[in-house]
């Protein structure tokens, strides 16, 4: 294998772990309440802007903004569930679609209005530079963001599998009525899941702000990719989303390497279409 190819694989893996983290939040929300949060990408964008403004106004490095972004996005998720999503939970599916779609459009437009559509960057983050392993270059902020993403994904996985609250979330996802019979307040589980899903994408946004362009449209791109990952991994499957995120990251990078970078998203969506054609329930769906 040529060294360039290895380099591309490494790059794919780095972005893939971040994709996984973004998609896990989305798939969890779907799994528990069968709602697609169309504003998921916009939550990512908001978190990036929070990080940007904390840096610009208070000189806080994005690495220290992580807990703030997480907390604020958790709160945002909680409020949006309580005041919007919960109102349409028992309503027609279209109403649920329109609600999160509306939130998405509102946030995206408000961001343009408030912060202009221009690209911004955090100029001098603490983490910069690259590590070199022979000819392989590893961007330090990307490596840290990826490692952090894996850790957070793992922590969520453990929380769901081992803690009492986590198991109640999984149980609600599998059989809502049975969960009620066991004494689980399933409405609270909804709220918590929506908030955790939002907090996860908040963490991803904080990581991403360390090295990526920050602009209102960033949510659209990442949002679309995360929908693909969720479908590819199997709706509601956390493990599926984790694997599919890595897969998409690698395919996207290799696609851009072997073909033209302009086609990298086309290749991602082609992979998605082929997979759901062969296996409509996704890789690990049921």
């Amino acid at each position: 294998m040529s060294e360039q190819l290895i380099q591309q694989l490494v790059n794919g893996l780095l972005i893939g772990f971040l994709y996984s983290l973004i998609a896990i939040g989305l798939t969890m929300i779907w799994g528990v309440m069968n709602i697609i949060n169309f504003a998921h990408g916009d939550f990512l964008m908001l978190s990036m802007f929070i990080s940007f403004w904390l840096y610009t106004l208070y000189g806080l490095d994005p690495i220290f903004s992580i807990p703030i972004c997480t907390g604020l996005l958790f709160l945002l998720g909680l409020l949006i569930y309580k005041y919007l999503v919960s109102k349409v939970m028992t309503g027609p599916a279209l109403a649920q679609l329109v609600v999160t779609f509306g939130v998405s459009i509102f946030i995206a437009n408000a961001a343009v209005l408030l912060w202009t559509p221009d690209f911004k960057m955090i100029e001098k983050p603490l983490l910069t530079g690259t590590w070199s392993f022979g000819t392989i270059q590893l961007s330090i902020p990307k490596a840290v963001a990826s490692a952090g993403s894996v850790l957070v994904s793992l922590a969520l996985f453990l929380f769901l599998r081992k803690s009492k609250t986590g198991k109640a979330i999984l149980a609600t996802e599998m059989n809502r009525n049975s969960a009620l019979l066991m004494g689980v307040n399933t409405d609270r589980v909804n709220a918590l899941s929506f908030a955790i899903g939002s907090a996860l994408v908040g963490i991803a946004g904080a990581f991403l702000s360390m090295y990526y362009y920050i602009y209102p449209g960033v949510g659209g791109t990442f949002g679309l990719i995360s929908f693909c990952i969720v479908a590819l991994g199997g709706f509601g499957s956390i493990e599926g989303a984790f694997i599919a995120g890595i897969l998409i990251g690698i395919v996207q990078t290799l696609g851009g390497y072997f073909f033209d970078p302009a086609y990298k998203y086309a290749i991602v969506f082609a992979l998605y279409l082929v997979t759901v054609w062969i296996r409509p329930q996704g890789l690990l769906g049921w």
Binding site: K164, K167, A168, L170, A171, M174, N175, N177, S178, A179, L180, L181, M182, G183, V184, N185, T186, W286
Partner: peptide, 29 residues
């Protein structure tokens, strides 16, 4: 969700287990 806390438990028709949870986790639930 509070009925079970009053001491009333139900074994529903068709079992309605948590399919992807283990036997132990179903019992713990």
């Amino acid at each position: 969700y509070d009925i079970v806390r009053r001491g009333v438990a139900m074994v529903p028709e068709g079992r309605q287990l948590f399919g992807r949870l283990s036997v132990i986790d179903n019992l713990l639930m």
